[in-house]
């Protein structure tokens, strides 16, 4: 998954992979896990992204063609 991150000024943009830190920020337990192991498992990453989405810190973008839907089952 690719992440586009907007800076605090709303203008600067960086593009990269969805980071463990991004997912961990939304959940204190995940953040502790991240500090201890400096990495998250795939499941933890998705849990973190779900929490971040619910908190309106992350906005997942799905793309869809006319016939097949790529709605990710992970969210």
């Amino acid at each position: 998954m690719t992440a586009i991150t907007f800076g605090d000024d709303g203008r600067t943009v960086s593009i990269g992979e969805v980071s463990d830190e991004l997912a961990a920020e939304a959940d204190d337990r995940l953040m502790e896990q991240f500090f201890e192991a400096s990495t998250l498992t795939q499941e933890e990453l998705l849990v973190g992204l779900q929490a971040a989405t619910a908190a309106r810190r992350v906005f997942p973008l799905c793309v869809r063609r006319q016939r097949r839907t790529w709605v990710s089952s992970r969210f």
């Binding site: 998954m1 690719t2 992440a3 991150t5 907007f6 709303g10 810190r57 992350v58 973008l61 793309v63």
Partner: peptide, 18 residues
């Protein structure tokens, strides 16, 4: 950039329209 499903965020409340 490969534009597969991705996420974006803003530290402040993001203005989608913008």
């Amino acid at each position: 950039e490969p534009w597969s499903p991705f996420s974006f965020r803003s530290a402040s409340r993001m203005n989608c329209a913008e």
